[in-house]
Design a protein around this nucleic acid. Structure first.
Lengths: 217, 217
DNA sequence: ACTTACGAGTGGCCAGACCACTTTCAAATT
DNA sequence: AATTTGAAAGTGGTCTGGCCACTCGTAAGT
């Protein structure tokens, strides 16, 4: 009979310990030598379990300091898979579309969830618009994503945004600023459909520019 | 200066080797001692990388035989992550919502893109419905995702679906089958809004069941 | 021809040893 | 007294070598 893998037991043990000791994200967990002692396993075996957990983004290790429980809201889930996703040379179009899907969903949430109050955020952007201050495209959208409260979606969006090419890291240009205003108004009035529609207009405008510029790498 | 983690390099090296040597799922990869030799690392360090890959379900090790490229995504990842991460309701809810977002986007695409013809697919499901044949929830949705043609979205969905718990892997129950019919009809007629609306109804029904059942471990 | 036993090869696990790095705190210096 | 310095302790990172448990092919024995 094949023994169940030791390092998987260790993973469970560590999880139990974390729960029992009420270790919070960011807290330090016992050192490798200490854990190996208490769990009665060799240090290298213990490390196999720890490295697995680290790859999953559940813990974080810093040489000389120790091992810490990471905020598992930042799941590496997406990163881990992004290596697989990216290897098949997916068309930029899919990335663009998928990112847009997340953004529209966030806007819908922000508009419809009474508990999400973005007045301060919209105000600050309106002021920047009027004062001709620079605004990065991604900065605005990020605020929407954060405000929506879905951390997983935010994480995925953040990745997609990185693969969306330059346009998103650029400043909102002059005429483009006019496209931003109706979005802000609709958000302030919680007019879901109007917000989505005007956001899509803006997004379409950006994409058109992106096409014209031709693609770099 | 903090060195980049060694075992992560090893993970990359192994992946490269797999690609270079054209190792297929199910094939055996070199032994630990052999790999350690060729990659010029200690065996224990190499093992840390291998155990990580094993936990991700990418490889499979059998004592006395060797290490194999696993043929299917046996992600233990899902089990481990779900016990660690998905304890808090917020995360579960985020996963559920995000998955739904991708599904709705796919439905919209399928309805609006003339080039996507799903008649054969809808037909086969209609027949299954009428013949009382078993239908898994995820099977139906997967078809929609695949048909939408956005492969990136499909991959993300595939992951999220695994984290969505049992409900998605279950068969469509008796009364539930009635909820599926309007979705099929709307899809056939390419009525975007109706399709989305009836799909959301179904999805809401599933989620309600999920809540009732309470959580198991 | 069939069965058995052995040995080579494999993963599983462990102990011990360095190394590189961070933190701490007491001693030395100013 | 305040500051700087540096040595020590503790941590993760890695390697070596060893032993065990298991699988499998094959040579030896029947």
């Amino acid at each position: 009979m094949n023994q169940p893998k030791r390092y998987l037991d260790i993973v469970s043990d560590i999880r139990d310990m974390i729960r029992r000791e009420k270790i919070r994200p960011g807290d330090r967990i016992p050192s490798e030598r200490e854990l190996a002692e208490t769990l009665q396993v060799g240090r290298s075996t213990l490390r196999e379990a720890l490295r697995s957990l680290e790859l999953l983004g559940l813990i974080e290790t810093r040489r000389g300091e120790g091992t810490f429980l990471s905020d598992h809201r930042n799941h590496k889930l997406v990163e881990v898979l992004s290596t697989f996703i990216l290897q098949d040379n997916q068309s930029q179009e899919d990335v663009w579309q998928t990112r847009l899907v997340h953004e529209v969903a966030a806007i819908r949430l922000v508009c419809q969830n009474e508990a999400l109050d973005g007045i301060r955020v919209w105000d600050s952007f309106r002021k920047k618009l009027e004062s001709e201050e620079n605004i990065l495209r991604e900065d605005f959208v990020r605020e929407v994503m954060v405000l929506s409260g879905n951390r997983l979606s935010l994480k995925i969006w953040f990745l997609l945004q990185q693969y969306s090419g330059n346009p998103y890291a650029e400043a909102v240009s002059g005429p483009e600023r006019e496209l931003l205003k109706p979005i802000l108004s609709a958000l302030e009035q919680r007019d879901t459909e109007l917000a989505i529609q005007s956001f899509k207009s803006w997004s379409g405008w950006i994409q058109k520019r992106r096409m014209q510029n031709g693609d770099d790498s």
